[in-house]
Nucleic acid binder design. Sequence first.
DNA 1: ATAGTACCTTAACCTGACTTTAGGTCAAGA
DNA 2: TCTTGACCTAAAGTCAGGTTAAGGTACTAT
Lengths: 148, 148
Amino acid sequence: MYTIGQISEMFGIPISTLRYYDREGLFPDMQRTSGIRRFTEKEIDILRMIECLKMSGLELKEIRQFIKWCQEGSQTYEKRYELLQKRKTAVEAELEQMKKVLDMICFKCWYYEQAMKAGNEERLSQMLPDRLPEEIQAMYDHAHEKPQ
Amino acid sequence: MYTIGQISEMFGIPISTLRYYDREGLFPDMQRTSGIRRFTEKEIDILRMIECLKMSGLELKEIRQFIKWCQEGSQTYEKRYELLQKRKTAVEAELEQMKKVLDMICFKCWYYEQAMKAGNEERLSQMLPDRLPEEIQAMYDHAHEKPQ
DNA sequence: ATAGTACCTTAACCTGACTTTAGGTCAAGA
DNA sequence: TCTTGACCTAAAGTCAGGTTAAGGTACTAT
């Protein structure tokens, strides 16, 4: 059993945020001793889940729903599964998007490296959009692909 | 030259958002004819940049700064390059993070698939944390790696 | 005793990124 | 003429996800 201060240390999450999560119902029936929150393994598991689902792009209220389902036992397996499947699809799409963004950023880094060497962008602008060096062109093209 | 309505259509961005971007100084010295905004190729280029930099996680005020540098010509190449390098590092880290999150989500999908088949989580809980089927274990372990 | 520290609450405040509202201009078509 | 549609502004509102403030309790060490 841990106090809110210990959990805050453990996870690097401000105390105010932990209290806010509690207010939002993310720790259903957390125990207290004379008003003071007692975080057990159960709450730690929930926090790990919150961190993961938050990073996957879920909102707090959706996370609260998921946690509620976890409490309700085996009859909500399907709902939990469906939510996770949707998340999976969304995260996969986001990952593809981020790869394109990264290629765009990398291209722009190359671009400004060249611009710095030359002192201007004249040569560079003549290379656009399809006379770039092979590797750079590949990044540029990938970054500019239409999303399917 | 395009009107705000045409640009809104082209980019799928609400008119109110385009006006908001303008208010925030993202289209420095955009021309107007009798009060009506005229979007040219220049503004279209800026919008493409906004979309890319936004997806890379930059805030509007940082994007405004970048656009301002673009206006200032060749003496800001270095600043622009540095900002992009920082973004590159951040996006690379985010990408790695997202891969872990995806593995976590995939693991959980598998978990609930099994739970649905079995009707309970007893078998599953016995497999944690290191007696999972090989492929699943790999996902689980990757998802739980400590960030370096 | 009293000071310090860690906890508690409620309510207000904050930030970023928009969106909505209320009221106004202006040109084209019925 | 008058209504419709596309534009305009300033100011207020919204939403998520917190954070801060003000005031209170309770244990511990000096």
